[in-house]
Structures are given as C-alpha cells and as structure tokens.
Design a protein around this nucleic acid. Structure first.
Lengths: 202, 202, 202, 202
DNA sequence: CATGAATGAGGATTCATTCAT
DNA sequence: AATGAATGAATCCTCATTCAT
C-alpha cells in the first residue's frame, strides 16, 4: 500500500492545500488542464513540486478538488436566493433576479466553468461530479418549490430545462460572441420563456 | 523558410488527406484531442507519420480540418429542411421535425461534438470556427424565415436562443444522464417553449 | 559539520532502533531494497520518517544493520550445532543434521537471503559484510574441527566448498523451481558429496 | 492500443537495437539495474532517449533482452563442448575441461552474471528466464549423456547439482574474495566431487 | 529526542515534429 | 511524394533527505 494522500489537519497545511487549489484554479482557467503542468502549479502556489503530491493523488486530483471547491462557491448565492423565497412565489420577480444572479456567478468564474466543461468531455470523474451537481441543484429547487406550494406538471423536467436555458443564456451573455445579437432583448425573451414554464396562465 | 502546407491538387493526394481527416475524426471522437497522437492517426489512415505533416501544419490543424468537414456534414440535413419549407410555415409541424433531426445529428456525431466543445474552451481557432458556424446558421434561418414571410420581433435573438434550447435538449437527451428525468415529457416542454417563440398568439 | 549517527544509550532508543531494523527486515524481504522506501519503513516501525535519520546514516545503512542482525540470528543455530559436537565426530550423522538445519534457516529467512544476495551484487559494503560472514563461518568450522581432532587436507578449501554446496542445495530446495527434480533424491546426492569431503575412506 | 515495440527488419535498425543492448549490458554490469538510467543507456549507445522506447517496451525490457542475448552467448561454448563429446565419455578429461570453460565464460561476463542474479531476486520475468535457462541446460546435458550411453541413477538431480557446484566454484574463483583459500587446491576438490557424481566406481 | 511537512533533484516515458532515404 | 526511424524537450511523479517546530 502506498502513501495515501495527506488529509491536512493543521492550519498551515490546510492553508497550503488551499494555495495549491487556488493556483490550480488560476492556471487551469488560464491555460486549460493540458496546458498546465504540475511544476507550474507548485511554483504559483509557492510550494515544491513534491509536496503537491502530498496533498493530491495526482494532477487530475487537483482538478477534481478545484472543481469541488469552486462549484460550491459558485452555487452558494443561488441556494441562498432559494432559501429566501416565501410563499406565494412571485415568479415574475424571482426569475429575473435568479437569472441575473446566475449570470453574475458565471461571469466571475468564467474560465473555470470552461475548464470544467472542457474536462467533463473526457474525464469520467469530472463528468460525474458535474452530473451530481446538476442533480443536487434540480432536486433542491424541486423540493423548495414543492414546500412553497407550487404545483407543476413534470416539475423535474421543467426545472432541468429551465436550468439549461439559463446556462445557455449566461454563456451567450458572458462571451458576447455575436455582434448582431442584442443581449438585452435576448434577456427578455429568456425571461418570458422561463416564466411560461412556471407561471400558470389563468 | 518553412514550406507552407501542401494544397493537394491530385486525386490521390486529396483522397489521402481525406483519409487522415476521417481517421482524425474517429480518434478525436473516441479519445479526445489529447488522448490521440499523430502516429495513431497516421496508422488508422493507413499513411506514414511523416506525410501527415505534408498535408497539415500540425496536430491542431488536423482538428480544425476535421471540424470543418464534419460541421458541414452535420448541418447539411438541417439546411435541407430549411430549404424545403414553404409558406405559410406550419411551425407546429416543423419544430418537432427540426428538433428530432438535430437530435439525430448530434446522436450520430456525439463524440465529435464533445471534442469540439472541449477544444473550443482552450483553442482560439476552434472557438472562432464554432462561432462562425453559429453565425452562419443563425443568419441562414433568419433569411429563410424572412423570405417565407415570417415576421418576428427580434428575430436574431429568438433564433439564437432557440438554437441554444435545441442544443441543450439534444445534449440532455443523448447523454441521458439523469434517471429521474422523463425525456419524452421534456421533449414536449421544449417544443412548447420553441413554439412560443415563433408562433404568434392570435 | 554533520552529526554522526546517534549511538543510542537509552533503553527506549535502542528499542526504537530495533523496531526500525525489524521493519526494514520485513520490507526489504517483501519488496526488495529498491521496492522499499524509508517512509514505509518508518511507518511500519511506528516512528517518524525524520527519526530514522537519527539512528541511521542513510537508507543503505539500515540495510547494513538489518543484515548484521539477521545474519547473526540466522547463523546462531548452526554455531550451536558446532559447539555441541563431540569427538570423534560422526559425520554421517552430523552432515544430514547440519544440512537440514541450514535449509530450515534459509527457509525461514528466504526473502532476506534474496535481498542480501541481490544487494551484494551492487553494494560494496553489503558484499564485504557477506564475505566477512563467510570468513567467520569458515574459520569457526575449521577451528572446531581441528579442536575435535579432525585432520583434513586443505581444510579451508573443503569447508568453503562444502558451504557452497549446502547453500546451493538450500536454494534449490527452497525455491523448488524445477518440477523434474526429485529433491529428496537430490538431498541424498548432496549428503554423499559432503561426506566424501570429510569422511576418509579406510 | 499503443504502439507496439518495433521489431527492426532493416540492417541499420538491428544494428541500433544491438547498440542499445550492448550499452545496457555495459551499464547494468557496471552500475546495476537501479544504478543505470535510460538516458545513460541511450547516450552510451549513441542514440536519443526516445528511440530506446522504439525498440524496447521499457527499461526492464532492455534488461530482459540484454540477458537473453548474453545468456545465449555465454552458453554457446559449453553447448559446443557437449556436442563434441564422443562415446565412451572420458569424464576424467571432460570434467576439468568443462569446469575451466565455464569459469572462463563467467569470467568474461562476470558483471552481467551479477546483474542477472541480482535482478532475478525481485523480477519475475528475469527469474523465469533464469529458470528456463537452467532447465534447458539440464535437459540438454541429460539427453546428450543418455545418447552417449551414460547410465546414471537420478541423472537430472546429479546434473543439476553438478551445475550448482560448478557455478559456486566459478563464483568463488572469479571473485577471489578469500585470501586464505588456495583456489588451485579447491579446483581439485571440485573436480573430485564432480567425478564422484558421474564416474561409476568399478 | 521526535515529528512529519517540505524539498527538489532525478528518472521513466511520451509524442509532436523532423529528416535521411 | 512518401516513409518511418529518430529526435529530445517536456512532463508526471517518486523518494531520500532535511528542517522548522
């Protein structure tokens, strides 16, 4: 049996592990997974190459940890919004608010989101982490709405697809790739589509 | 001075180049860009490693060509559908048809789509190609609808966002990652959302 | 200035040093010298990696100490047998007894013997230790036989070669590598050869 | 499937493979397996590090090939001696001849023999190769003697043990480790022991 | 004395690219 | 135009050893 990865208990160690994660985050974001080497991560973190393998099993493990940390960080504001909802839910107010929140989240973690997506194509573990995140968010929203008395046909499907819409639009909005697109107008269209999913016509 | 990449004129050369592209397509799809090496591509194409560099500047160039070819191949059925539309457009019939068509397209090129997406995160050229494709499709749809007498507010935005929806759903449908999702029900939801974008309420 | 290796005087220290030697013995036996790392030795010994260098100059030094201890341990039964001999020596009884004893010794230290042999090829110090051991045993046997009144031509040469025979056979017997060999029959052959060396024909 | 190891057909390639094997032989002999690195082997062979992996699967594979080549080379003179035997076999002449031959063989491949022995302790493949060699030699001798009309009880056991004796003595003789040993006298003792195995007393 | 985190040189292996034939 | 052998820089990871606490 080989050395297992150190699970740091002491303050200084945790700090060091976090430094490596932060360095990994930055570099994976800047140059992608394959464009980053472990020596670079170590240097940026201000540690030796060896100690990186004291905290992480291998390079991929750094990525997985980076993702875990940043996914949580990124989702937290949205979960707080969910928790703040009171019955009856005013979708016309909440939807734009949620949309803007998520755009903001993506904006501030733009590159990481890319790296994540990029890796989930080839790495089983990363993909599973990504799927687990989606599941968690979907279930959380469904429960919350249910608790708030919102009755929907096919709630899981609607929520999931709504998330897809939001993701897509965030992406479009952030990268702002197409000059012929009026993103403000697009935002209204998205909000309408989302509303149509959740707001029952009288 | 560096030879520029050979632009093959002769039959045999073109055929060889196509073989390399086909091999590249297969292998990038199966193992991703970084999981594929040029020797493997050459072997699968039945050519020598050296000659690969007679047709392509470098490994990335193979990818770019692979994408070009396959993107066109993948879009062709959809463009044919567009061309077949006659006025007045029956969106209630066309939207499901188009949706299924695109799902089919993605399904049969599932891995390539992944590879493309994966690379577009880190590779400028790939990303630009991807954007150009989106532009082309968007413009084509907009022109076609306009010619068919369909009047829309913010057509570019709606079309673009519709494409996002379709992409998202195709993705969901093909990867079938979440067991709690009823994809048939989701499909109906998507069709409704799409219809709402294009069909004017009376 | 470099601290020389600590020569532990206190009980606890000696105990700790022995634990390290014991761990080293086990691990070198199981995985060989190059398949064992110092961290593993320390862990198995229940001490910190650092303190290993308080007791030993380096990894090789652990091996040397391991060998010293275990060589003595391994030879002790044979030396007792020697001490128990009484004049006149009944070689026909003693030779099989000694042979079986040595086989048993090798059997219970099989892997260590391998490690030792393995290292003696590349490590000067280990080789010298090995040679010194052979010398010691040879001389001891020669003296003992002389004291018991056994007169031999070329005693050193005979004793040494007898030891080689015994070693070879032990090796064969323990590893039991060749299915076509009847080791019981071989044992008789060995005993005959040994007897011929020491028993004078009338 | 990854590139398999190149099996060179062309003159130049075979020559290069042999150069690597020769370099490996030298370096493994000089510094042992773990004291030799692949870059060094490549340098001594006058090739690049990369091409080493074109001819060999990994470092261990170099060793295995080195052993194969040198074992054959080393055994060839002895096999020729065997082939030259004519009935009736004059063991009193043949045994010293064979002994001296084998000593010579070991002498000229002294270090390699060490490396081989050293590795056979920890490496399964090397050990198996070693065992296979012993089997081959034993069987060859047994067949030859049988064909020459030599009848022996337990021939396999005697032959095998005789080989052990010869090996042991060669070892002793070559390394000449013990100053108190008269190796000429020892040689006579060995020859006597061997004769006793094969020559039937009248 | 003791700890175990930290160091960083070293080493096996890969692979995009070149080049002699 | 074509081959495929050859290159060698680059990379991940290990581990003997040191050192701050």
């Amino acid at each position: 049996m080989k050395n297992s990865v150190r699970e740091p208990r002491q303050e200084r160690s945790i700090e060091k592990k976090n430094k490596i994660i932060a360095a990994g985050y930055e570099l994976f974001s800047e140059n992608g997974y394959y464009g980053t080497n472990t020596a670079e991560i170590a240097r940026r973190a201000g540690v030796s190459t060896g100690i990186v393998y004291g905290y992480f099993a291998d390079k991929r493990d750094i990525l997985v940890c980076v993702l875990e940390i940043y996914i949580n960080k990124v989702c937290e504001p949205f979960f707080r919004l969910l928790d703040g909802l009171r019955s009856p839910v005013d979708f016309n107010a909440v939807i734009p608010e949620a949309l803007d929140l998520i755009i903001e989240m993506h904006k501030s973690n733009r590159n990481m989101h890319e790296a994540l997506h990029s890796l989930s194509g080839t790495d089983e573990a990363v993909r599973n982490q990504f799927i687990a995140l989606e599941d968690e968010v979907t279930v959380k929203i469904a429960e919350r709405l249910s608790n708030l008395g919102v009755k929907l046909d096919n709630p899981m499907e609607k929520i999931h697809f709504a998330m897809d819409m939001v993701q897509s639009f965030s992406h479009e909005y952030i990268y702002d790739k197409h000059e012929y697109i009026n993103y403000a107008a697009m935002r209204d269209i998205v909000i309408n589509s989302l509303s149509a999913l959740f707001v029952q016509p009288k």
